[in-house]
Amino acid sequence: MLQWSDRSPQHWREFVNHEVCVTVQDQQRFEGRVFTVDPVSASVVLVSVQENERPSVRVILGHAVTDVQILRRGTEETERQMKSVFLPDQTQILSA
């Protein structure tokens, strides 16, 4: 069984925009929507947007991740919402 940090970018990409539950080494669990997985450190960036609360962002270091399960699939709308958090309107697009 491959460790999370040894997985391919294709594998990591499959989790982007979906709501997941990430299990870490000491059995702690974190839930949220995946914004990205860093291809260098395999760190998972989760975003949680609760009503009437400010969005919170959690970075889980790749070496600590033992399992990631998809809970709910995201939609184009959730992708757009998440992008608006990280990429303000004036952000210059640097890659195609």
């Binding site: 970018p9 990591w12 990205t36 860093d38 960036v45 990429l87 890659s95």
Partner: peptide, 20 residues
Amino acid sequence: EEQRLRSELRERFLRTLLLM
């Protein structure tokens, strides 16, 4: 294709660090 995916994922991660 892999390189494209890597750059897309990495750019998002760098934006997260910028935000942090």
